[in-house]
């Protein structure tokens, strides 16, 4: 058991190394990872400024923009990654080794998180400097805890999505697309979800990103402490084992189905 965990961590480290080193080797990553995402945030921030919205709304948008980049990374960087691994023949080479698939996905998650964190930090930095967004430093510890919990929950969800790509390859894109716009809508990317009717608020609260984003906003913009955010922490802490268990089961099931149907190494589908 211990050696299995050690192997998983080694694999995760190696895959993260490839992702970070390979991903940042071409300087063009600055354009894709930092400059372009900033434009979307800037356009919403300018809209709020022209409409004369309260200053807190700018901080709201900046945090939303930073957090949504993690969601994009989860669905397109992590879920989709197994599709590319399969197409390039790397999945086949991986699957003949004793390395656990979870290690590969964890490595992708960590590597992806590193790159996305650069993107998120640049959004926060530019938002603070250019749009004068202000944050409450006393909320940092609570924000950090909620951020970590949100990431674990989100990347567990990413493993579920990855298992769909493992089996269905390109068809998995549809599933990822289904998860992109509705979650952007429901998570309150640029607005508080309190504007929704109660039923939709409840539905939105089942998404870890919504809870995480709301918790971080409350801590960094309104100065809430950990006690004030206890329900956020509890909700995320409950979601994590559920999603992690679901991810493991889905991965095992999809791997088995893919081996039965001969899809594990099937390309161009």
């Amino acid at each position: 058991m211990r050696s299995r965990i050690t192997l998983l961590l080694k694999v995760a480290y190696a895959r993260a190394y490839v992702r970070i080193k390979g991903g940042n080797r071409e300087p063009s990553w600055v354009v894709w990872e930092i400059l372009l995402p900033l434009l979307a945030v800037a356009s919403v921030a300018y809209t709020y400024m022209i409409l004369g919205a309260p200053r807190e709304y700018i901080g709201f948008v900046v945090i939303g923009g930073a957090m949504i980049s993690y969601w994009f990374n989860v669905i397109w960087g992590m879920g989709n990654a197994l599709y590319w691994e399969k197409e390039t023949g790397n999945l086949e080479t991986f699957m003949i080794t004793p390395a656990p698939l979870e290690g590969l996905l964890l490595g992708m998650a960590l590597g992806g998180m590193f790159n996305t964190t650069l993107r998120a930090l640049s959004i926060v930095l530019v938002g603070t400097m250019a749009f004068k967004a202000s944050f409450n430093p006393s909320g940092l510890p609570a924000a950090f805890l909620i951020f970590v919990l949100t990431m674990v929950a989100l990347y567990s969800l990413g493993m579920c999505i990855a298992s769909i790509f493992l089996m269905y390859s390109r068809s998995g894109w549809r599933a990822a697309e289904v998860l992109q716009e509705p979650i952007m809508f429901l998570s309150g990317l640029y607005y508080p979800i309190s504007i929704f009717p109660t039923l939709i608020q409840l539905l939105a609260s089942s998404i870890p990103l919504t809870i995480g984003m709301d918790g971080i906003r409350r801590s960094l913009l309104l100065g809430y402490n950990l006690y004030d955010l206890r329900f956020h922490v509890i909700s995320l802490s409950v979601m994590i084992p559920v999603l992690a268990y679901l991810a493991k089961r889905m991965l095992r099931y999809m791997e088995l189905r893919a081996k039965v149907e001969g899809r594990l190494t099937l390309r161009w589908m």
Binding site: L7, K10, V11, A14, Y17, K21, E26, N90, P98
Partner: peptide
């Protein structure tokens, strides 16, 4: 076959595969 990561060197790719065997 062309498995491995094109943007990484031969050495880096081989090292990656050593890690898959622990």
């Amino acid at each position: 076959e062309r498995s491995g990561y094109g943007i990484m060197t031969v050495k880096e790719n081989l090292w990656y595969f050593t890690q898959l065997y622990g």
